Simulated assay, not measured.
Amino acid sequence: MPGRMTHFPHSFLISYHSEGTEPQTISTDTCSAVLTALTPDTEYTVSVSTILQRGGKSQPATTTIHTDPPAPGPLQFSSVSSESVSLCWGRPAELRGPQRFKVSYTEMLTAKVCSFVVSGLNVCVQDLMPGEEYEFGVSTVGDSGRESCTVTATTCTGVPVPEELTVEMRRSSVAVAWKKPAGLDEVSYLLTLCSDGQCEQTISTKSLTFSFSNLQFDTEYTVSVCSVLANGRQSKPMSRVVIMLGCM
């Protein structure tokens, strides 16, 4: 505002409207204003004129603005597996009828981003990497093609457990074997041997077999094995119970 205007009492008249609607006006003594109750994803023409207290009105300064679509409701995960994530979100309260949403997800380790557009309120994202952290985002796509702000949430895909765990009891020892989980390349395994709620041995190995020796007769043991990825994330354990009988 030119400095000489400070010598003349004045206010500002703001007029705004969208196509096909009557102009709305507000008056203010300051150099800013907040326009409320606007329609989402709509273009408005906004004009501002200076009004002198003793009479007189300037030519309006005019601009256009386009409101954003409303954001979806909170993002939630309905299921998470080692290779897929199912997520859902709430319908934007201000919109009715069919809506489109942009879904994006980022693999945090590589910063690789993928995105696509859906018309529903849920989606299952597949072909993910096991045991990796992902950030998911969803935004509303308006009829104009503009997007709302994005709601985000982060989760980690699961680690698949070893397959077909078998135990073979021998005299004072137990031979354990399992198969590599499908879909994993680099993986190691964490084995534990427990008795009476106490962990007696913990073994890390890349092999698919191991033997626990020097076990006590007439004792119940729980043997567990879980998959361990290079990033340290582990699967749930697969377990078997064995009883070392003294007559063996």
Rank of each mutant, 00 (worst) to 15 (best):
V167G: 01
F136H: 08
G145S: 09
A153F: 02
C149R: 15
S172G: 00
T154K: 14
E168P: 00
S148L: 06
G158W: 00
V174E: 06
E168Y: 09
S144A: 10
G158L: 14
V174M: 05
S139F: 03
E147I: 00
R170Y: 10
R146C: 07
T154P: 02
T157M: 08
G158Y: 00
E147K: 07
E164C: 01
E168V: 15
T157N: 08
P162I: 06
R171S: 11
V161S: 14
V138C: 01
S144F: 09
L165C: 01
S172Y: 15
P162V: 09
E147W: 02
T150K: 12
E163Y: 04
E147S: 10
V174D: 02
P160D: 06
S144G: 14
E147P: 02
P160S: 08
V141H: 08
D143L: 14
V151Q: 11
G158F: 00
E163T: 13
S172W: 12
V138K: 02
G145L: 11
V159S: 07
R146L: 15
S172V: 10
P162A: 03
S173M: 11
V174T: 11
R171T: 12
T150H: 01
T166E: 15
E163W: 05
T154E: 10
P162W: 05
V161A: 15
V174Q: 05
L165K: 05
S148D: 09
E164N: 13
G158H: 03
V167H: 01
E163Q: 15
S144V: 03
G137D: 06
V151T: 13
E164W: 00
T154A: 11
A153K: 12
P162T: 07
T155H: 04
V151L: 13
T150R: 12
V159R: 07
F136D: 01
T152K: 15
T157A: 08
L165E: 03
R171I: 13
V167Q: 03
C156V: 05
S173V: 00
S139H: 01
V174W: 06
C149V: 11
L165G: 02
T150Y: 04
C149D: 13
V138E: 02
T166R: 13
F136W: 02
G137W: 08
T140G: 04
C156T: 13
C149L: 12
T157L: 04
S139Y: 02
E164S: 11
R171G: 04
V161F: 00
D143V: 10
V141P: 00
V174G: 05
T152Y: 13
E163F: 04
S148V: 08
E168I: 12
G137V: 06
T154W: 01
R170F: 08
V167R: 00
G158K: 13
R146W: 11
T152A: 11
P160L: 07
S139R: 10
L165P: 03
C156N: 14
S144D: 11
S173Y: 06
S144T: 15
V141K: 14
P160E: 06
A153T: 04
P162R: 05
T154N: 01
V159H: 06
C156Q: 10
G142W: 03
E168W: 03
S172A: 14
L165H: 03
A153M: 03
R170V: 06
E168R: 12
R171F: 13
V159Q: 05
R146K: 15
V167W: 03
